[in-house]
């Protein structure tokens, strides 16, 4: 019943805490992109020059241009990010932020910052992480694993069409992927601003990338802060790849999937039930 072991335990715990605190604080003012190390102090200068107009001096997304912008600039103090390789609810990796800054966000006012050097972009990423204490108290999530892509053939596309129906993607994105589903007009983001679901017929790029793996990642991790949820608990990798292959046929692109679909469709259109509320599918 002696008190000593307890005290010793507490002391050890305290030591451990302060050590992890130190590490976290360090991680918060630095970023690591491949072999480039970003520094928040240097990033502040870049931020004040390029980012502040929209994202604001306090990083709260209330820069002087913000009122004219829709969707609104990201609020870094909330540390909730759309484009992540990590599960819903977790922080993105430094690389995720770096890619968002570099790529820009299509259909929004966020341009590509590719013209800045890798070092400058890494610095900005480090500085962005100083706006929320979440970076100090929790590390980024563990990126989801994306297994090798399954063959893109007509069977896969048709299975993906069934997934689209079953997961009720059409509720927001519409039966033809035009972003006009029954719930589309009511959607709001986490700050109660109206937001539109993605219209697949408008182009080739998504907010978080353009490759098949990017599409996979988008619906498996969800776009946090928006109505787009994560489907990671509901889909096996095979289903997810099938869905990717089907989604590609909704885009005005000459992708391999679109070619397969367009060759198959004319002779088989009557076999398909329409997608949407009438219990469609095959």
């Amino acid at each position: 019943m002696s008190r000593i072991p307890l005290l010793a335990c507490a002391a050890e715990f305290g030591l451990l805490l302060s050590a992890t605190g130190l590490l976290a604080a360090q991680a918060q003012t630095m970023s690591r992109i491949g072999n480039v190390t970003g520094n928040a102090d240097a990033g502040k200068r870049e931020y004040r020059r390029y980012c502040v107009g929209c994202h604001g001096p306090a990083g709260d997304g209330l820069g002087e241009n913000a009122q004219w912008i829709d969707p609104k600039p990201r609020d870094f103090t909330a540390a909730v990010f759309k484009c992540r390789s990590t599960p819903t609810g977790s922080l993105p990796t430094d690389e995720d932020l770096f890619h968002s800054v570099s790529r820009g966000v299509v259909t929004t006012n966020m341009p590509s910052w590719e013209p800045l050097t890798r070092q400058a972009r890494a610095n900005v990423v480090a500085y962005i992480k100083t706006f929320s204490s979440r970076w100090a108290t929790q590390g980024p999530g563990t990126p989801i694993t994306i297994p090798a892509e399954t063959p893109a053939n007509i069977e896969s596309i048709l299975r993906g069409r069934d997934v689209f129906q079953k997961m009720e993607c059409w509720k927001c994105h519409g039966p033809a992927g035009h972003g006009d589903g029954p719930a589309a007009s009511t959607l709001t983001d986490s700050k109660d601003n109206p937001i539109r679901p993605y219209n697949f017929s408008t182009g080739s790029r998504f907010k978080c990338g353009e490759t098949n793996a990017d599409v996979y990642r988008i619906f498996m991790t969800g776009l946090d802060g928006t109505p787009m949820p994560s489907f990671a608990d509901l889909m096996q990798p095979n289903d997810a790849w099938d869905l990717v292959h089907f989604l590609r046929t909704l885009q005005p692109l000459q992708t391999p999937e679109a070619a397969i679909w367009q060759t198959w469709l004319p002779a088989h259109a009557k076999e398909l039930k329409p997608l949407g509320p009438d219990q469609g599918g095959r």
Binding site: A78, V80, P87, T88, G89, S90, R134, Q138, K166, M167, E168, S190, G222, D224, G225, T226, P227, M228, P229, S230, F231, A232, D233, L234
Partner: peptide, 18 residues
């Protein structure tokens, strides 16, 4: 349904539930 608890102190997540 999608369950979207708009947490600000805890992590905000958003999951679909067919």
């Amino acid at each position: 349904h999608n369950i979207h608890p708009l947490a600000t102190i805890n992590p905000e997540w958003n999951k679909s539930q067919p």
